[in-house]
Amino acid sequence: MNPNEPKVLRRDAAQNRQRLLDAAERVFTESGMDASVDEIARVAGVGMGTLYRRFPTKEALISALVRKLMDDLVAIAKTARDRTDGRGLEQLLYGTGEVIASQRGCLPRLWSDEETKALKAEYWRIMTELLIAAKAAGRIRADLTDTDIEVQFWAMRGVIETTRGVTDTAWKRHLALCIAGMRPGAEELVEAPLAERLARRVSSR
């Protein structure tokens, strides 16, 4: 066996791990990331010993959730890349919104987590490809930049967090309005796009 390959868990251990991840998503969404691991174990229906065998620290549990979230986002990006009509960017935006709206508890760590840098880089590479394709198809204005899309994600996160517990769909209307403003023929943009170095500073917060 290759020592670098991830260890395959027994069926019961894998089920316990998934129960803990599902419970953590629920607890963090309802109570924020300050929620205790005791509550997560209770919701998962397992003992604290089981939790600590799977996740030695709360940080390890959070990192696993963020990785799962980024895996889902990369999968959505790859699916959107298969489109040939220039609509892949829009599909990616809505798909990303669906994922982060359903897993709000980890949003503060989504773009700043150091353990998932490679996944985030892959996601942004695909997003840039989709932006280029959307421009070529005449779906998106030519002066839109990748940092404009990144700012849109920050705005969408703000809507999702602000409307938590009130409505789960406000972000969709907000996104539809933003996409309408991205169409060719809209008014000329006066402000310059956010510089990439500044976007990185914001994302790291």
Results as ranks from 00 to 15, higher is better:
53 R>F: 03
171 W>R: 05
126 I>R: 01
80 A>D: 08
20 L>G: 00
24 A>Q: 03
83 R>S: 10
77 A>I: 11
60 A>I: 13
37 V>H: 00
66 V>Y: 03
193 P>N: 07
122 E>L: 01
185 G>V: 07
127 M>S: 11
204 S>P: 15
29 T>R: 14
153 F>R: 12
82 D>Y: 05
45 G>V: 00
184 P>L: 00
69 L>V: 03
203 S>A: 14
199 A>L: 10
24 A>M: 04
162 T>C: 14
173 R>V: 11
198 L>N: 10
70 M>E: 10
156 M>V: 08
78 K>D: 11
87 R>Y: 14
78 K>N: 13
138 G>H: 02
104 R>C: 05
193 P>S: 07
71 D>G: 06
94 Y>I: 08
35 A>G: 09
23 A>F: 06
5 E>V: 15
144 L>K: 15
66 V>D: 04
41 A>L: 00
2 N>G: 06
20 L>W: 02
37 V>M: 00
79 T>E: 14
89 L>Y: 09
163 T>H: 10
63 S>Q: 14
90 E>C: 12
21 L>T: 06
129 E>A: 08
112 S>R: 13
51 L>P: 01
143 D>K: 02
93 L>T: 14
185 G>C: 05
71 D>I: 15
135 K>G: 05
6 P>Y: 12
106 C>Y: 06
192 A>P: 15
141 R>A: 11
105 G>F: 07
150 E>C: 07
20 L>E: 00
131 L>S: 02
174 H>G: 06
16 N>C: 03
154 W>A: 11
56 P>R: 13
15 Q>H: 08
52 Y>G: 00
58 K>T: 01
79 T>C: 08
30 E>D: 10
26 R>I: 11
102 S>Y: 01
186 A>M: 08
187 E>D: 12
109 R>E: 05
26 R>Y: 12
145 T>D: 02
143 D>V: 01
45 G>I: 00
138 G>K: 05
117 K>D: 03
53 R>A: 15
160 I>H: 05
182 M>N: 10
172 K>N: 01
129 E>I: 01
137 A>G: 05
105 G>C: 11
86 G>Y: 15
95 G>A: 08
9 L>K: 10
27 V>N: 06
173 R>W: 04
46 V>T: 01
23 A>R: 02
41 A>I: 00
88 G>M: 07
132 I>A: 13
53 R>T: 12
57 T>D: 01
112 S>A: 14
19 R>I: 03
2 N>D: 12
36 S>N: 08
19 R>W: 03
79 T>I: 15
85 D>P: 07
50 T>E: 01
201 R>W: 13
132 I>F: 05
78 K>V: 14
28 F>H: 11
172 K>Y: 03
77 A>E: 09
30 E>P: 15
85 D>W: 09
3 P>G: 04
56 P>C: 11
178 C>W: 10
86 G>T: 10
182 M>T: 06
180 A>C: 04
67 R>M: 08
197 R>M: 06
66 V>R: 07
198 L>M: 10
152 Q>V: 13
40 I>V: 10
145 T>M: 07
56 P>H: 13
44 A>C: 03
